[in-house]
């Protein structure tokens, strides 16, 4: 079963920035790009677990703050020569609020 969580107002996430959301044991990063698109990835770099929410957002990508892997926000995939993927979550913006979909089985992870 997938639950949609109401996270925060759209304006609570700065443009070219991110907020972190903790749902149970999960920490999810919600990103907003310059053109106001919103994406959600697990806040964990596929390289060594760096907190992606602290990275610099550019285009539809984020640069991990620890060792600069560049992660594609659209699918969580590492770009360039690096390989790995940060888990992706569905998000929706409705009436100025951001909603995040988390399947129940993924809440239990770890």
């Amino acid at each position: 079963m997938t639950t949609w969580y109401d996270i925060c107002a759209f304006d609570d996430v700065p443009a070219l920035g991110a907020r972190t959301v903790r749902i149970g044991a999960r920490e999810i990063a919600v990103f907003r790009t310059a053109d106001d698109a919103v994406f959600a990835l697990e806040n964990k770099c596929p390289h060594k677990g760096g907190p992606l929410a602290e990275g610099i957002v550019h285009g539809r990508k984020v640069a991990c703050p620890l060792h600069n892997w560049v992660i594609d926000l659209e699918n969580g995939e590492a770009t360039g020569a690096d390989h790995g993927c940060a888990e992706e979550f569905a998000v929706a913006v409705e009436a100025g609020r951001i909603r995040l979909a988390v399947p129940a089985e993924r809440l239990a992870a770890e």
């Binding site: 639950t3 996270i7 700065p14 907020r19 972190t20 959301v21 988390v102």
Partner: peptide
Amino acid sequence: SHEFSPITIVPALAAE
């Protein structure tokens, strides 16, 4: 201040 305050959701309450 938003930089330092994560949004926390307790699943037990929000689920269903």
